[in-house]
Nucleic acid binder design. Structure first.
Length: 285
DNA sequence: CGTTCAACCTGGGCGC
DNA sequence: TGCGCCCAGGTTGAAC
């Protein structure tokens, strides 16, 4: 998404529109009238990604400090230079005086996304290390181990915590643990160093692979790149969305269950619980 | 500290 | 065809 909108860098804003949402408008800060005025005539100095968030950076000028429009697409939000899937649900239209890139849209069907114009301190508070852990595309086993080795949380739930590691969502948490061969239900403190090695490697591998396939475009969240290409990573999913279908590695049927109010998919044969260290009573069968 | 639940929304899919 | 449910790449805060 970030790379797809990089062509707006250097362009100057000619207009900002916030079309009325159907029911409730998406969360925009500051309120629309002020946001529009704050953005008028600004030049885009850069586009950045912090975990799942995109930050469009605007130069400072005589009256205004350097600021960042931080966009959280959440479930169905997309940044588009091309056409929106529907005319409804266009939330923000940034117009540029450019033939090549006349506009950048934030489209969000469900409207759960947010957009906030922040100064340096606000950016730090929203996207700094207190809110976001190391990026999942480059996370190391040591990063994960120092944050989670004493945690009692189930490893899949912990991987979804953006303060632990930034950028892993529900699809990729399942895919990462599948590749790593780790049971999503296991408490973090039960995992070994070798487990963390495999999880960190799987995180980097799965996300790099997903990015190169331009994401997963499935039913609800039909992701499109900013220039309207659909992702294809859904065709490479090991477990996500594959309930009752055979595991590609062993043929066992993929299981779906709910964990922290989110669907979890895993192969119960390839992703086993580690044996408890505590001695168990002998079974007398 | 960890888990569960509700809330914020729209719309596709499914069973009846 | 219509209706009611369940489900969905997310985050937050309250309650237990």
């Amino acid at each position: 998404m970030r790379r797809g909108i990089a062509s707006v860098v250097g362009l100057r804003l000619a207009s900002t529109e916030l079309p009325r949402g159907t029911n409730r408008p998406i969360l925009v800060r500051p309120r629309p009238a002020i946001l529009v005025r704050s953005l008028a005539g600004r030049r885009v100095a850069g586009v950045h990604r912090f975990g799942k968030r995109i930050a469009i950076e605007f130069d400072d000028d005589e009256t205004r400090p350097r600021q960042w429009l931080v966009i959280e697409p959440r479930m169905t939000g997309m940044l588009l230079i091309g056409r929106p899937p529907t005319d409804a649900h266009v939330r923000i239209v940034l117009g540029f005086a450019s033939r090549k890139v006349p506009r950048l849209l934030f489209w969000d069907r469900r409207g759960l996304g947010t957009a906030r114009l922040l100064d340096e301190a606000g950016l730090q508070a929203a996207c700094g290390p207190t809110k976001l852990g190391p990026d999942a595309l480059g996370v190391s086993a040591a990063d994960l181990q120092t944050r989670l080795s004493r945690s009692r949380r189930a490893v899949k739930v912990a991987l979804l915590d953006q303060r632990v590691v930034a950028g892993i969502g529900n699809i990729y948490a399942a895919e990462i643990l599948s590749l790593a061969g780790v049971d999503p239900r296991v408490a973090c403190r039960r995992l070994s160093g070798a487990d963390w090695d495999r999880i960190a490697l799987a995180s980097r591998t799965i996300l790099a692979d997903a990015v190169s396939h331009e994401g997963s475009s499935l039913g609800d969240a039909t992701y499109q790149t900013p220039d309207n290409r659909f992702g294809s990573f859904q065709d490479h999913h090991r477990v996500y969305g594959r309930e009752n279908q055979p595991c590609h590695d062993c043929g066992t049927l993929v299981v779906r269950f709910v964990q922290a109010q989110r669907a979890t998919f895993f192969c119960p044969a390839c992703q086993w619980r580690p044996r408890r260290r505590r001695v168990r009573l002998q079974q007398t069968d």
